[in-house]
Design a protein around this nucleic acid. Structure first.
Length: 478
RNA sequence: GGCCCGUUCGUCUAGCGGCCCAGGACACUGCCCUCUCAAGGCAGAGACCACCGGUUCGAAUCCGGUACGGGCUACCA
């Protein structure tokens, strides 16, 4: 109970969908246990920083609808929550490890390391640090460290043995220590590497469990070694499987949209995104699959998370989106639609069509096209539709004119009355209702498909509807 | 190359030794409903449970190997 978990993105770009999934799992666990969720920004790579990335992370997470307890802008007992503002902590930690002999200064230049690796490759060996600086006597190393600013601190990895973890998702995993290199912990610019910073922060912030992406699994032994070097207890880890592109590779830009902001502007609902994402890699073990954020908080279990990576499936996302759109009340849908419609479109009229387009949308952006006939008289009446297949042009003119006449007397101008009028014309002329509505729809909406015709005509209003019907007749006469 | 992980319908998945000649969902096909398109309902097709051995009375489920896929292999995270 009362788990402390964290989401720790790097501000190297807009918020990625895969990260959102990891965030969600952390969020579920935090809320479910009445615990604490921490947002921590891991910006230890100063070269890859992207302007506005933190804003984008905040925007994305807010859109998704999750909230957290401690973070850069929220503050908290472990502030600051941005790693670049916690440098002294890491430097002190690195120093401690050097002092205790579990880490050492390395003075190798990047050039030397490159040459070393090239030579190793040429000889067909594994490329890894040759530990040249590992055996410099401590006194000499300390002295050189003060005069040579360009040194780093490396972890002194034991030469033999194994290190293991019991991952909450992947189970028991063991690594032979001889396969692990002497990892850099503190870079020459005084910044920690990820490997040092995560361990220190996760420890200081009391994170339990650590839930992160599967791609961190290979560096876990390095982290374990750092915990060991500090003499700290290792908290439970849970690695969650990757979200893959349709080609089975890690989801990236080349697979299309991958940032939350893009999905937002494409008209996806956060409810759908959450539902869809949560189900990649997790299942409640039942046949239910429609879940709100609150449902997920209730039902999520970390031990039900899958090991295999799951592919991103646009069709399935679309399905969930349509489903969640349909679950919205008409007023709620109107509000969601608002940013996707021209400001000048009369919201009362929009509100009127909402019930009729609700089950015809996959994404919110589709609404505009679906209802534009109500807001612009600039429609294209296609003769091929005005005259349904196997009907004569003259007959179509007659049909449209009869509809025009009967509609004029419909009062009040509502769907049922309009339906009766059209049925009467069909009956009178021996047309099928289907054919008649094809012609009328083309005349009134300029479309082949759309919201229910009678309701659409009612919404349009008698005057505009009649004008369009007359225009269609004229068009056919010329 | 090395280390680690993974492998059930096209896709997301259920399954944790007999209930499975494998269930649900998306997508697909057909039918019904119907003023169009949807939505909805019903039905169907779709997986020799990657492969090969082993354990067991019995394996999708346990063990070993192989294949394939993926991740990592930086003073990136």
């Amino acid at each position: 109970m009362g788990k402390r978990v964290r989401f720790a993105p790097s501000p190297t770009g807009a918020l990625h969908i895969g990260s959102v999934r990891t965030m969600l799992y952390n969020y579920f666990l935090a809320r479910q246990t009445n615990g604490t969720l921490i947002l921590r920004i891991e910006d230890t790579d100063q070269e890859r920083l992207v302007d506005g990335a933190i804003d984008s992370i905040y925007d994305g997470l807010h859109w998704v609808g999750v909230h957290w307890d401690e973070g850069p802008r929220e503050g908290g007992p472990h502030a600051p929550y941005i790693q670049s503002e916690r440098l002294p902590l890491y430097q002190k930690g690195a120093q401690e490890l050097v002092d205790s002999g579990t880490a050492y200064y390395c003075f190798c230049t990047k050039e030397r390391l490159e040459q070393m690796r090239a030579a190793q490759r040429a000889r067909g060996e594994i490329t890894r640090y040759d530990r040249l600086c590992r055996n410099i006597p401590p006194a000499e190393a300390a002295e050189r460290a003060s005069s040579e600013p360009n040194h780093v601190v490396r972890l002194k990895v034991p030469e033999e043995g194994t290190i293991a973890i019991d991952d909450l998702v992947f189970g028991h995993i063991e690594w032979p220590l001889e396969t692990i290199e002497d990892q850099v912990l503190l870079k020459s610019d005084g910044f920690p590497t990820y490997q040092l910073a995560v361990v220190i922060d996760d420890h200081l912030m009391g994170i339990d469990p650590i839930i992160r992406g599967e791609d961190w699994l290979p560096s876990t032994p390095k982290h374990l070694l750092v915990y060991r070097a500090f003499g700290w207890d290792v908290p439970p880890h849970a690695h969650v499987p990757n979200v893959l592109g349709p080609d089975g590779k890690k989801l990236s830009k080349r697979h299309g949209a991958t940032q939350v902001g893009e999905f937002q502007s494409e008209g996806y609902l956060p409810e759908a995104m959450v539902n869809f994402l949560a189900l990649i890699g997790w299942s409640p073990g039942t046949e239910e699959e429609v879940f709100s954020l609150d449902d997920l908080i209730q039902k999520f279990r970390i031990d039900q998370v899958q090991k295999a990576g799951g592919k991103w499936d646009r069709d399935r996302l679309n399905y969930f989106n349509g489903l969640w759109i349909r679950k919205l009340s008409d007023d709620a849908l109107l509000a969601r639609l608002d940013p996707f419609l021209p400001a000048e479109w009369d919201r009362r009229l929009v509100r009127g069509v909402v019930p009729f387009i609700k089950e015809r949308m996959t994404t919110l952006v589709e609404a505009q096209d679906l209802i534009s006939f109500l807001f612009t008289d600039d429609i294209v009446q296609d003769p091929a539709l005005l005259v349904p297949k196997k009907r004569e042009r003259m007959d179509a003119i007659t049909a449209l004119s009869r509809v025009t006449v009967l509609l004029r007397f419909v009062d009040p101008f509502i769907a049922t009355g309009i339906e009766q009028a059209i049925a009467a014309v069909a009956n009178e002329l021996g047309w099928t209702v289907r054919d008649l509505t094809i012609a009328v729809r083309a005349a009134v909406t300029g479309r082949k498909v759309g919201p229910p015709l009678y309701e659409s005509i009612a919404l349009l209003g008698k005057e505009r509807a009649l004008a369009r019907l007359e225009a269609a007749q004229e068009k056919l006469e010329t």
